[in-house]
Design a protein around this nucleic acid. Structure first.
Lengths: 144, 144
DNA sequence: TCAAAACCATACTGGTATGGTATACATTAA
DNA sequence: TTAATGTATACCATACCAGTATGGTTTTGA
C-alpha cells in the first residue's frame, strides 16, 4: 500500500524540470546530483516518463531533459500512471479483472473500496506540477 | 500501491463473522471453505485480527472464531491497520520517518500526498462491517 | 485419562517485485 | 572523429509476499 521509490524519484525529477525557465534543458547527471537519485537508476526512471510524454529528452552533447508539456498539464496521477500503471488499491479493482470473491459484483467490501479509490484518483489528478513548483518557490523564498 | 491478498482474505473473514447471529461461533475450516481461503493461511491471518481485538478465538473442541466487538465498531481501516500496520501511501508519510528529500518539510509533493492520504484514511474509517453485512444481506436477497 | 478437535506459534520456502547496476549502442556538437 | 550525452536490454541481489510445515497448547467428552 505504498508508492515505489522510483515513483518518488519521478516526482522530484518532474518537479525539478518544472522549476526550469522556458526552453531550458538539464542533463541527467545534474538532476541525479541535485535530487539525490542514483544516476543509472535515473536513466531507467526517465524512460517511463518520456514514453508517457511527461518528459522530453535531447540526445548528444549538451543533451538532457525538459518537460514534455506544460507543467500545468502534468498531475501527480499522470506521473504515477507513467511509473506504475493505473492505480488499483485492490486486485479486484484492476481493469478487466473479475472479483476473486465468488459472489463477484455482490461483494460490498470491494464496492466500498472502489468509491474510496476513485476519490483518491480524483485528488491526485487535481494536483499539477505548475502549482507544486509555485509552492516550492514560495517556501524556498521564505525559509531557505 | 495495492492491499495484500492477506488483507482481502481478512475482509472476507470479518464480513463472514459479521453475518453471524449473536453468540455464534464458526471454526476456521468452515470459514476457509466458504471464503475460499487456504486453511493454513487463514490461521496466520486470524492471528493478526485476534491480536487487534477484531476477532475473538475459542480453543479446544467446538472452538472457533467470532467477532471480538460489535461489527459497527470495526471499520475497513481497522482491518487494514491490523493486517498491514498504519497506511502510508509514501515512505515520507510514515510515522517518525523523515522525508528523504533533503528539503524535508519544504517538499510540496509530500504535503500534497499527505492531504490525499488523510482523505483516504478518513474514508476507510467510515465504512464499518455492520453496514457491509447489511448491504450483503440485501444483495443476496435480491440476486442470489 | 487420554484421544480428538480445534486453535497457537515459529520457522521455512518458492516465486516475484523492487531497487539498482552493467554493457553495448545511437545521436549530436564541436 | 571524439567525447558527451541519452537509449535499450539484460542482469543481479535482496526483500517481501503468499502459502506450507511442524510441533505445540487448550478444551471437550467418552
Amino acid at each position: 500500500m505504498q508508492l515505489n521509490v522510483a515513483t518518488d524519484y519521478a516526482f522530484r525529477l518532474v518537479l525539478n524540470l518544472a522549476m526550469l525557465s522556458e526552453g531550458e534543458i538539464v542533463n541527467g547527471h545534474a538532476i541525479a546530483d541535485q535530487e539525490k537519485i542514483p544516476p543509472r537508476f535515473l536513466l531507467k526512471i526517465v524512460r517511463f516518463l518520456t514514453k508517457a510524454g511527461i518528459v522530453r529528452s535531447y540526445r548528444g552533447v549538451d543533451g538532457g531533459y525538459s518537460l514534455g508539456k506544460p507543467a500545468v498539464g502534468i498531475s501527480l496521477l499522470d506521473v504515477i500512471n507513467a511509473m506504475e500503471g493505473p492505480i488499483a488499491i485492490h486486485r479486484c479493482l484492476k481493469d478487466g479483472e473479475d472479483c476473486n470473491k465468488t459472489e463477484g459484483h455482490l461483494c460490498p467490501v470491494h464496492q466500498a473500496l472502489a468509491v474510496i479509490q476513485s476519490q483518491m484518483v480524483d485528488g491526485l489528478s487535481k494536483v499539477n506540477f505548475d502549482r507544486l513548483a509555485d509552492e516550492y518557490r514560495k517556501r524556498r523564498g521564505k525559509n531557505g
